[in-house]
Nucleic acid binder design. Structure first.
Length: 276
DNA sequence: GGAAATGTTTACCG
DNA sequence: CCGGTAAACATTTC
């Protein structure tokens, strides 16, 4: 269940295993595997060669030797796997060929919130990514503009940084970790926050996700693994997420878990204040 | 049986 | 129409 660092880890794996390969066939195995917005069945991909793999936030897309692209979102449990042993949740298969070498790229997804689709690009961005804000690592990310945007709103800061139309890539784990590092309470109302505190939250999100990318993302179980089936190691570095009733590594106060927006939020009630 | 799980979309409300 | 909130989607595990 991938956020930006996990999707970036998948992208890196696809760069190594898929770029330069020709898709000799594509097969949809589950009715929900293909996004309804797809302009054609993915079977039409046959004959295309993969030139590059791009990412914005949690969205991935395959650049091809044609103008349309293969877009993918992993949802909560989507995976791309090269020649996997486990095929129980395989929702689509892409057969790849480079020279004499043939590999199978599986799109697996236990919970079927993920999808793939064939889409057109506008100014280099696929249709389904058009309304997604740049993520924090993109050159086009405008931190001052995002701070102003967030400060204009009257929502909880965590809700704001989870909103993919404001800044993309941050999910529940890294939101909690960023807020912990920034010492900001997740329920701080954005309209009442200083620009400095909002900026610090964004800086910390970037810092935390940078560290996570270096170790292959966060894996709690085999629901998130890279294209070779390997786990990431960032779970050992988590300070807030999933640590309810464990001592805060800064001050020793027990981490608290609350619920809003249909999600759990973990934070230190002592270090993380609603203003500051 | 209930709750929860790394996400997005849509319906609804004021 | 807009901003904000809550439920729905599907599957599995604890």
């Amino acid at each position: 269940m991938p956020e930006l660092p996990e999707v970036e880890t998948v992208r890196t794996g696809l760069l190594a295993h898929v770029v330069g390969h020709k898709i000799t066939s594509a097969t949809q195995l589950h009715e929900r595997a293909q996004n309804p917005r797809s302009i054609a069945p993915i079977e039409d991909l046959a004959g295309s060669t993969v030139l590059d793999i791009k990412r914005r936030g949690k969205f991935l897309w395959f650049e091809l030797d044609r103008s349309d692209v293969l877009v993918a979102h992993l949802g909560m449990s989507g995976q791309f796997l090269i020649d996997p042993r486990e095929t129980r949740h395989t929702r689509a298969i892409f057969t790849l060929k480079k020279g004499r070498k043939e590999t199978a790229l599986h799109f697996n997804d236990q919970r079927t919130f993920g999808w793939v689709s064939l889409e057109r690009k506008t100014d280099g961005i696929p249709t389904s990514v058009a309304k997604i804000a740049p993520d924090i690592f993109e050159p086009s990310f405008d931190q001052a503009a995002v701070i102003a945007n967030v400060g204009r709103r009257k929502v909880k800061i965590k809700t704001a940084i989870l909103n993919q139309n404001i800044v993309s890539g941050i999910g529940n784990i890294y939101a909690d970790e960023a807020l912990w590092l920034a010492r900001v309470h997740p329920e701080s109302v954005t309209h009442e926050m200083s620009a400095a505190a909002i900026g610090r939250t964004l800086d910390c999100a970037k810092e935390v996700m940078s560290q996570a990318i270096k170790v292959g993302g966060t894996s709690f179980d085999d629901l998130y693994i890279n294209v070779n089936g390997e786990s990431g190691y960032f779970a050992i570095s988590l300070n807030a997420y999933g640590r309810e009733n464990e001592p805060c590594s800064r001050c020793g106060t027990l981490i608290k878990r609350i619920s809003f927006a249909n999600r759990s939020s973990h934070f230190c009630p002592r270090c993380q204040k609603k203003r500051g």
